[in-house]
Amino acid sequence: SPQLPSQPPLVLELLRCDPDEMQVQSKIMAFLQQEQSGRGRQEKLSTFSLMCRMADQTLFSIVEWARSCIFFKELKVGDQMKLLHNCWSELLVLDHVFRQVQHGKESSLLLVTGQEMDLSSMGSQAGVTLSGLVQRGQVLAGRLLTLQVDRREVACLKFLLLFNPNVKLLENQAFVESVQEQVNGALLEYTLCTYPLYLDKFSQLVMRLPELRALSTQAEDYLCYKHLSGEVPCNNLLIEMLHAKRA
């Protein structure tokens, strides 16, 4: 990746907050294996149920990431909760989509555990709605790949999602607005100095955010529906987040 001296320091600071991917991967893998070993050999989990568990564990790592982040630490827990309630599914989708960008294969998904999942067999297992969501994710990943999005830009996008000034009833609204502005400015500066020939990269990147939000809303609707029909494993962070936002 490009290493120019003129990179805005804030972008590097945001990148430093990113968790170690391999650490997250092995932690989630170990958790799922331990859970599986506690379950009888006969009780094999469905693909959907396994996906829910992966999403749930990824959410834990997202909360850990947020807690350790510059800016976020300065907020009171009440505001932290409001921000995370608002964007958890967007952060999950971005995490998934950017993993596919790095994976760079259209025929398979790279899961948070490092496992690869063949997409040709997905249709029969997952049903029409989930397959459609996955497909939309692949389209978004394709767009980001075309844009040649890099890790630093994704670090900025995560902050833009987290520090959403449209979240209601924040105690420290002004602070959230100022972080949003600072990160926007840093991302703009970063794209201009790192990709000087690619003048609209910033706006192209920012235009992906509403697409990401639309996809995450659809994914939430789907999860809600599955939850109401009793198919989502209970007592987890995923369901708590779903409740908090929809209640």
Binding site: V63, E64, V77, M81, H85, L237, E240, A244, A247
Partner: peptide
């Protein structure tokens, strides 16, 4: 009425007591 998200609150609150 919003349900309190106890698990999230716990995750955000932990280690922050002292």
């Amino acid at each position: 009425k919003k349900k309190d998200n106890a698990l999230l609150r716990y995750l955000l609150d932990k280690d922050d007591n002292t």
